[in-house]
Design a protein around this nucleic acid. Structure first.
Length: 281
DNA sequence: ACGAAGGATTCACTTACGTCA
DNA sequence: TCTGACGTAAGTGAATCCTTC
């Protein structure tokens, strides 16, 4: 069974899980170990999931197929000067411009194996060009990485090493994949949040417009009813303590009355002691 | 106990390659 | 075949945390 065959038999479920659009997690830039635990529990909004069985199938297939890949090892002058053999893969040019970080990476104990084998090592660069080649992860590798990411959005060194070994990738490649994956997740979440806030903004704008209109109407009603209002003796007015609306003692219960000339938004607090609040409402 | 130095890790930003319409 | 858009692997520098001295 090859990678593609396996993959065709694999059901991938893609889900955009939004627990709370505004539930942004504010984490310190470098989380402490305890924070990393929280990270691991962080619900990834961009979810690719595999069943446990499928996960194991992939895992086994990766172990099985990985060693059958065509392997090519090249040595540049610089690489030789470092006393190591580097696998020629997608990041060929980056090896010719090795950073201190990369040197650290290659200095790890398990590099020997992971440098010799690759997920998809082709006979590219036979022309000896130093142009940066880009690795394309296989679907199975991506699926397994996704599955791991679902469990841990960040990896500790051991997890990284194990995953790299299983996928026949360098730890650095696994690390980069997780970095980029986290970035994509964050971007996706930002887009979701943005959409949510847009909708909130629209809703509030509509609400504001509606309230402004209502206010205008009430002001108009108030100014129109002012003379009549002023003519009424205070004893004939009631105010409900609970709703604080003013009405004539005889008829005020309905909402129509509340919006009538006897109801005002301000609080003159006229209250007819002869009428109980309950009777007024 | 405190602070400086250096390593390790992560993130944000960017570049460059591969793919596809 | 060419080209531009897009996705993504990888490079880089800065920030932060941790360990050691």
């Amino acid at each position: 069974m090859g990678f593609d065959d396996l993959h065709s038999a694999v059901g991938l479920a893609l889900g955009l899980g939004i627990s709370s659009p505004l539930n942004l997690q504010h984490k310190s830039k470098n989380p402490s170990p305890s924070q990393k635990l929280d990270d691991d529990q962080f619900c990834d909004p961009l979810n690719l999931s595999l069943s446990g069985e499928t996960y194991l199938q992939i895992h086994e297939a990766v172990k099985k197929v990985g060693t059958d890949n065509k392997i090519k090892v090249v040595c540049s002058d610089r690489q030789l000067s470092c006393g190591r053999l580097y696998r020629q893969d997608s990041a060929a040019s980056s090896f010719s411009n090795v950073s201190v970080k990369r040197e650290r990476e290659f200095g790890s104990s398990e590099e020997g194996e992971t440098e010799r084998v690759s997920s998809r090592i082709s006979d590219e660069d036979d022309d000896g060009s130093n142009g940066r080649k880009k690795l394309r992860l296989t679907k199975v590798q991506s699926a397994l990485l996704e599955e791991s990411f679902k469990i841990h959005s960040t990896l500790n060194p051991k997890q990284k090493q194990d995953l790299a070994r299983d996928l026949k990738l360098r730890p650095r490649q696994v690390e980069v994949w997780f970095q980029n994956r986290r970035a994509r997740t964050k971007l996706k979440q930002t887009e979701v949040d943005c959409e949510f806030l847009k909708k909130c903004c629209e809703t509030l704008t509509d609400e504001n417009r509606r309230l402004q209109k209502e206010l205008q109407e009430l002001k108009a009603l108030k100014s129109a009813a002012q003379p009549l209002y002023m003519q009424l003796p205070a004893a004939t007015l009631t105010m409900c303590p609970s709703c604080e609306s003013i009405g004539a003692a005889s008829s005020h219960a309905s909402e129509t009355a509340a919006r009538s000339s006897f109801a005002v938004a301000s609080k003159p607090h006229f209250f007819n002691h002869f009428n109980s609040p309950s009777a007024a409402c």
